[in-house]
Design a protein around this nucleic acid. Structure first.
Lengths: 139, 139
DNA sequence: ACTTGACCTGTGCGTAACGCACAGGTTTTA
DNA sequence: TAAAACCTGTGCGTTACGCACAGGTCAAGT
């Protein structure tokens, strides 16, 4: 029987993460002390480690919850696991491309801005630096 | 004078984005119709376009709010603008590296999993595919 | 025995930038 | 005049926590 603090230490996560996982039903205490403190089974340490591993591989907490639920019902989650990662791989590469494009825009902006002096805003303009990208950069 | 719908169309954003910007104080209606519908000044179209531009360059809505506030007070936001982007550039490149590392982990996992058959969960194990990364992949 | 201080507890709210559902109001069409 | 299409503001949900709060617990010191 472990308290939140002990479970968190053995699972190598901060305590508020354990509490959050309880809140979303990813961990379930097996009982309570008289003072209301939650108590966990020692196999929840393995569960917590499993969660960390899956997160590290790109699974969301919701997906991890589904995987654990299926496992608890005796169903093999392996096919789902494979297909989730295949999807995530595609999503992720799109996001990476977007972020690289953003990176290029920011670099271009900084370079471009070296030739522009600071301006004082007037009624027409908010910030000339940003507005100077009107034509070139949007969409 | 523009309603939410008209402003959204002219600014080329969905209506719920306009409403959200009102909610966080990034846009302020100049008044209301008798029925409670918000009314905006026509220069809010330019403001909305400015917001889109700044977002496209990597500014958060909070930063944009600060920039606009300073501009309204007549202060030049240019120095802040430059330094925000310099920071964002560093943050972003770190995130990109992390996502590339995740990408590699996912690719490695899929490849590795081709040699592993589906397993049925038992008491000891939740999903052998994920658990097979225990030693190699965490941290 | 008592008090101080450090540590721990659960709960509730905040984050970023929307997306969506709801119940109702308005405008257009038939 | 009625029905259908469209629009309105508000409130809640999203992800994965971080932080603040008011109070409970435990070891050390006196």
């Amino acid at each position: 029987m472990l308290t939140v603090n002990k479970l968190a230490k053995q699972g190598e996560v901060p305590t508020h993460v354990v509490r959050y996982y309880v809140r979303i039903g990813l961990l379930q205490p097996v009982g309570q002390q008289e003072n209301g403190y939650r108590l966990f089974a020692s196999q929840d340490v393995a569960r917590l480690r499993f969660i960390r591993m899956a997160k590290h591989l790109g699974f969301t907490l919701n997906e991890i919850k589904q995987i654990i639920c299926n496992a608890d019902k005796g169903e093999s989650p392996c096919d789902d696991v494979r297909s989730i990662i295949r999807h995530r791989l595609v999503e992720n590469s799109i996001k990476i491309e977007e972020m690289i494009a953003l990176q290029r825009r920011m670099e271009g902006a900084l370079e471009h801005w070296e030739s522009i002096p600071n301006g004082i805003p007037d009624g027409d303009s908010i910030c000339r630096l940003i507005e100077s990208f009107e034509d070139s950069a949007v969409q």
